[in-house]
Design a protein around this nucleic acid. Structure first.
Length: 421
RNA sequence: GGAGGCGUGGCUGAGUGGUUGAAGGCACCGGUUUCGAAAACCGGCAUCGGGGAAACCUGAUCGUGAGUUCAAAUCUCACCGCCUCCGCCA
């Protein structure tokens, strides 16, 4: 959520920002609605002020006739207030709806573009893996090695259902333990959040209102989290932190549930796009300063790149274009790993920053050194998402006999074994 | 799931319809005192909006939301949360 004052005073910037993100929202309407809101607010408050004043007079005054007269007068004023409040309620409903739709402003460095096709490559690391044999895809490899069972997965969950079995499970644990150690060394505190959350927390990160159909809902109107980012942001919701406890760095680990409602026909096979998976997520709350946000954004992204490098996966980093950014994002990098069979880079995770867009919605503030209360900035980035990352590891580390060489750094977590299979 | 109790400022704790944004205490900040400190004494100390250059004026806030009333921390209803007991359970 943006500050209405900012929107009011920088209408043109906000309109341009929304346009860059290809978000259709009527800023002109919001601003004129806000003018109306302030005018009505003033009227209501003046009337209330009168009621307050006269009510005190009534309490003090001893003359019963005068009392009755004042009470009668106030009854009329009350009716006036009621009518105006009714109007206000209506107006606020629309005002709020519009406010939630206003996207955060993308950074000037964000490339123009409508969809992910126009994301801009900013870095490449490693040689694209080539084989002197016909490489298999992860599906075939993992099925042969009995790491995954899709037939029974679909039988049980339906479309996008899967079981991880045997070494598929072991490999996941290895990655989780490795990630936990790797990021803990970078001073992130481990958290396992609730995966079921009350509806309001989903507004905090910006997953609502736009993403209703992508989330799962329980009969109690709670939602299943799509990422640990959601409960991690809610963690300090409503709190006022002090500046010296910032930055807060958290490494959340949680199951993630996504309906992938808008993705029918996309990635229908394999482990790239599934309805439930596990993810370690980096999250930072820091002081409200653009340069600080940028610094931590680069740091988060670099952490993730280092992690991928340590696994020896060739990757590229792209800067997401305006149209590919979520509403709350100021800027986002995607890290994409090389998938040999498809001969293309596929997303492994992303790093984003939000300025105070999320903190404002979550009401996370801090007292700065001058004692002023401000909204923190927030950032987050993937640490590792399984089973998606298995796709690129399995395909890049395959040998001609269908075995999978285990990446050096994971060996200690796989009981020292060299190969799967 | 059943029964009961509770929710007031950073903490504690008064307050059951009328100048109560809220007594008292603790904590905190400033001052007096002191070589310095403690103690004592004096003063200050909620948040978020609106108007204003400012002084200041004004609205809202006692878990949340609605209602009754000229007037609500106080009365009514719903919801949320916490505690105790019973049931169920990894």
């Amino acid at each position: 959520m943006l500050d209405i004052k900012f929107i009011r005073e920088n209408k043109d910037i906000v309109i341009a920002g929304a346009k860059k993100k290809h978000v259709d929202v009527d800023i002109e309407k919001l601003v004129s609605l806000d003018e109306e809101r302030l005018k009505l607010l003033k009227e209501i408050e003046d009337l209330r002020s009168e009621v307050n004043r006269v009510s005190n007079d009534i309490a003090r005054d001893q003359d019963p006739a005068l009392k009755i007269q004042l009470i009668e007068e106030m009854r009329l004023v009350k009716e006036d207030i009621k009518a105006k409040e009714e109007k206000m309620k209506e107006l606020m409903g629309e005002w709020h709806k519009l406010m939630l739709e206003v996207p955060n402003m993308p950074d000037i460095s964000v490339p123009e573009g409508k969809s992910e096709e126009e994301n801009q490559e900013i870095k490449r690391w490693g040689e694209q893996t080539r084989f002197d044999f016909e490489p298999k895809d992860h599906l075939e490899l993992m099925l042969n090695l009995k790491m995954v069972d899709f037939d029974r997965g679909v039988k049980v969950h339906g479309f996008r259902g899967y079981y991880l079995v045997g070494d598929g499970v072991k490999f996941s644990f290895a990655l989780w333990n490795y990630a936990s150690d790797f990021f803990s060394k970078k001073n992130f505190s481990l958290i396992m959040p609730p995966a079921i959350g009350k509806k309001n927390i989903f507004y905090g990160t910006g997953h609502l209102p736009a993403g209703v159909d992508d989330l799962y809902w329980t009969q109690d109107n709670d939602g299943l989290i799509a990422t640990a980012e959601i409960p991690l942001m809610a963690f300090h919701g409503g709190e006022v932190l002090s500046e010296d406890e910032l930055p807060k760095k958290y490494l959340g680990f949680s199951p993630c549930y996504r309906r992938e409602a808008g993705a029918h026909g996309k990635d229908v096979k394999g482990l790239i796009r599934v309805n439930e998976f596990f993810k370690f997520e980096q999250l930072i709350l820091c002081e409200a300063n653009h340069d600080t946000s940028v610094k931590f954004h680069e740091e988060l992204n670099r952490n993730f790149e280092e992690f991928i490098e340590s696994l020896g996966l060739p990757y590229r980093t792209v800067s997401a274009c305006g149209g590919d950014l979520g509403r709350g994002h100021v800027k986002m990098y995607d890290v994409e790993a090389w998938v040999p069979r498809e001969e293309k880079y596929r997303e492994l995770g992303s790093a984003s920053y939000f300025h105070d867009f999320q903190s404002r919605r979550c009401n996370i503030r801090y007292k700065d050194k001058d004692g002023k209360t401000k909204y923190t900035h927030s950032l987050n980035a993937t640490a590792v998402a399984t089973p998606r990352i298995l796709v690129s590891i399995i395909e890049n580390y395959q040998s001609s006999d269908g075995k999978i060489r285990i990446p050096e750094v994971l060996k200690p977590y796989m009981g020292g074994k060299e190969f799967i299979g």
